[in-house]
Amino acid sequence: MSELCLEFENLTLGYSGHPAVHHLSGSVACGGLTAVVGANGSGKSTLMKGIAGILKPLGGRCKARYRRLAYLPQQSEVDRSFPARVIDLVSLGFWQRHGLLGRPTAADREELATVLETVGLTGFEKRPLDSLSGGQFQRALFARAMLQNADLILLDEPFNAVDTRTMKDLVALIKQWGAEDRAVLCVLHDHSLVREHFPQTMLLAREVIAWGPTKEALTAENLLRARQFQEAWDEKAPWCEPGPPKADGGISADIEKVRAHV
């Protein structure tokens, strides 16, 4: 439990030189649920992309120690018109296990059936993707994340277009992931949901406003401070010079993955 899964060292992520996540430092333990909360444009999705290695940092470092990563983006880039069935999409979750050439085994097929049952998609196996509703599609993506058997799971607003019943099912699944010692970072807007289910919260407004036990992070005062940040870019903003000198002079500003041996 006490081992660190993610370490941010003065991490700055952004676009065209403007920071979206500014000088973030801190760490996430292996195992457990962390909610990432903040207004629109506060850097939540950017942080997810940074951790997933899709966005290169402008400065600082993000050290990620995981065997497998599952990332559910806010807007998945799945081509819904692609002629594929639900199982074709969900089976992509076997990628990290089988790679390019491995054949799925009988046990895999059983596992596939189990995850589809867990997310309530039994009977949808052969349905074409373009016939799924938004919520059913989201459940299929969760099923794929389950198959990935990841120890670091990034969920970016996973409950968009999801009804209450499905949301309850999916929250139960996320809590089970937490109990299985997987680290889950989940971007959410529903504060009551966060208070009820997520022990840790990171409140972002480009910079970290509060990060710690949810009760201490989501105070009225902190939420007010989070609302007051300036969302628009300031074209005339001065360059941010590093105050404290960086350990490595900022040369190796890159994602560093330390993969444990499996």
Partner: peptide, 19 residues
């Protein structure tokens, strides 16, 4: 490369996150 071609068409962002 069949599986990679299909994955790259179907969900390129996913493929980037796993491989």
């Amino acid at each position: 490369f069949w599986r990679a071609l299909v994955a790259e068409c179907l969900d390129p962002l996913f493929l980037r996150s796993v491989s």
